[in-house]
Amino acid sequence: MQIAKKAIPYTPNPKPLHEMNIMIVSTAGVHHKDQEPFNTDPTVGDASFRIIPGDVNSAELTVTHAAPKEHYNTDAPKEDINCVFPIDRLRELAADGEIKGLAEKHITMMGYSMRLKKINEETIPALVKEVVRSQADGVLLTAG
């Protein structure tokens, strides 16, 4: 079996979940209602990401996404953001002692963009730096 050049290496984590702070990294287009929405113009594309504070009220979050509705219908996430950005569910897990807690910040971007070169060469390295700086013990990846 051949592994793709961009395959993510498996890195085991020796910590049990109850000792881990978790960060959400999402391509669902989630952002704070006060933040600039993602650019949905397909001729422009949006290769940016947004930082979401760890203590954000989930009612203050929304979704902006360029994917056609038949590929990603944003109606449900706009009604309950937890279906693509499960911040309240993670808080419940922390309250129950299943995880240690949430990271100080979370990262979101819009996964529907034709600017793949820019995303691979600029966005992802910058995003990874934010993840490393966060000192989160684990990352929950979500998509729209």
Rank of each mutant, 00 (worst) to 15 (best):
M1G: 05
K5I: 13
K5P: 00
I8M: 00
T11C: 02
P12F: 08
K15H: 02
K15V: 02
K15Q: 01
I22W: 04
T27V: 04
T27M: 06
A28R: 04
A28N: 11
H31T: 10
H32Q: 14
D34V: 11
P37V: 09
F38M: 12
D41H: 08
D41R: 04
P42C: 07
V44C: 01
G45Y: 03
G45Q: 03
G45N: 07
D46I: 04
P53Q: 10
D55E: 13
V56R: 11
A59M: 09
A59V: 07
E60T: 12
E60W: 09
L61T: 09
V63L: 05
E70H: 12
E70W: 12
T74M: 15
T74C: 14
P77V: 09
P77I: 10
P77W: 07
E79V: 06
D88W: 14
D88V: 12
L90K: 13
L93H: 06
I99Y: 02
L102S: 04
E104V: 08
H106M: 14
H106I: 13
M114K: 01
R115S: 04
R115P: 01
L116F: 03
L116G: 00
K117T: 13
N120A: 00
T123W: 04
P125A: 14
A126S: 13
V128K: 04
V131R: 02
Q135P: 00
A136Y: 06
D137R: 06
D137A: 03
D137C: 02
G138W: 08
G138F: 11
G138E: 13
V139A: 03
L141T: 01
L141N: 01
T142K: 09
T142P: 05
A143M: 07
G144H: 12
